[in-house]
Design a protein around this nucleic acid. Sequence first.
RNA 1: GCGCCCGUAGCUCAGCUGGAUAGAGCGUUGGCCUCCGGAGCCAAAGGUCAGAGGUUCGAAUCCUCUCGGGCGCGCCA
Length: 585
Amino acid sequence: MKDHIQTLLSAALDRLRDQGLIPADTEVAVHVERTRDRRHGDFATNLAMALARPARRNPREIAQALVAALPSSPEIERVEIAGPGFINFTLVPEAWPRVVSHILEAGEAYGRSDIGAGRRVQVEFVSANPTGPLHVGHGRGAAYGAAVADLLAAVGYQVHREYYVNDAGRQMNILAVSVWLRYLEACGETVPFPSNGYRGDYVRGIAARLREAVGERLCRPAGEVFADLPPDAPQGDKEVHIDALIARAKALLGEAEWREVFDLGLSAILEDIREDLEAFGVVYEAWFSERSLVASGAVERAVERLREGGHTYEKGGALWFRSSAFGDEKDRVLIRDNGEPTYFASDVAYHLEKFERGFEHVIDIWGADHHGYVPRVRAALQALGCDVDRFEVLLVQFAVLYRGGEKVQMSTRSGEFVTLRQLREEVGTDAARFFYVMRRCEQHLDFDLDLAKSQSADNPVYYIQYAHARVCSVFRQAREKGLVWDRVRGEANLHRLVEGHEQALFERLSRYPELVEAAALAREPHQIAHYLRELANDFHTYYNAHPFLVEEAELRDARLCLIEAVRQVIANGLGLLGVSAPESM
RNA sequence: GCGCCCGUAGCUCAGCUGGAUAGAGCGUUGGCCUCCGGAGCCAAAGGUCAGAGGUUCGAAUCCUCUCGGGCGCGCCA
């Protein structure tokens, strides 16, 4: 409907250009919006006011010319000029109920569109280091990223969801050595556990699996392992200590056996993460390995390209990228003085590779604590000649859990953090997915565990799901009473739905496609969450005000059509957020 | 010190690329169950949109500054 009015206005605009009333080169976006007040009709545009300046005319004068030039339409009952120069459109009454037929016809496809035109867009999200289970901080990125990806898919983009696996860095070596030490313990050795190691219980679990797989073949006496190592903190430097420990482990085991430990740890954790996300309703098209990037020489190639482009220099034995020439606050090291590439170097290679894979748009979803990282990646892409307008980073702020009004403390050091899995077990996937995307991603999120668990009206998830279940329940009741819903008869009698509650529902339902489009383009799934609450409220209100299973079959069938449409839109909307739509609760 | 995000009702937050009288939920107060699920509904009270300038027909929205809160500023990942 909105599109229809936009089309009419564009036509009128062309006529005014032809008539010379406005300069031919005037560029103006035709912007149609829903009115907030019924007295202003159903839709309004500020086009005349936007044209006032370039045309050097009074807005109302332009509005009159626009209205005169407007092609006629059977959908529109009235066009009025109001206030400083708004043009208000009122639809013919018959236009509204039609939305119900559209919804019943389209079913799950209602709200989907093709504005993406099949363009390929990549969404990379979560990408947590595979050194331990996902925690609740990752949960928000997972829920948000999945919702953004699903929204983009819903409006016609070809979406590629990707998880970047940091399986090549020092942190992974630390994990491997942690696993190995726990394994030694399991073999009966007594080892002092490094203060910088991974202390979580899951490491013991992986060590146990290792022992099952290889027996005591990889066991070495603790005395040999720790002989002459630099001291751990607090006497010594914990970083130096653990690096020496890693080197010793590699020396004692040899490359092949070290790799065995490393790979078992990596695959165990990746498997855990994958299962965790899957249970959270989050699936990926690809898991992209950093190690494969290093192995294929892509990192060297990317660094080489920067060097050839004259964007690098050497200082202090290291190779630097002149990112400050592209807006970053300082230059960044690509290759350390020890010859090892930095994490940044492989990230440059990864992002270059994204563009080389031919995505038309590349979206990264990061925790807000990485915001300082954005300018350097952008700088690198620019230096490599990529179109940075096609690169977008969405930063997700922290989520803080509350229980009983108190902040839930999390400590990574002790290994006692709240995992995503624990959260799912406590509040359920539906509540978790919904709560995570209830707020704009720039907004800090207060996650109230008690509220998420509560089965009451206070809890928006239950409120919305209840509306869905209630519709299903009405249909169950109808069947029990032997009433058969005749959809065709219902659709033929939609004009009978003249109650205020019914009109409100038509209006609400009709804006759903606009909403999905807006939410997708703005990457704002929270708009869907808010909409669904309002829709559910409209429905519950209607439910309380009017019986659906009335005697008169025509009216009854029409009302059943309407509430079935409501059910469909709730199901579609919840689906975009990864929340289930139960038939009973 | 520099950079990014945030500041709207007692609390948690919406407010669509600037638009007509700033909206929800919770909480508070007062109502609605012989009836399709009361896990629901209705009503009332509650605001100097942090503050000050600026841009214009018009600013919660855009720009600048100030104040307050969060986060980040490694040859870590």
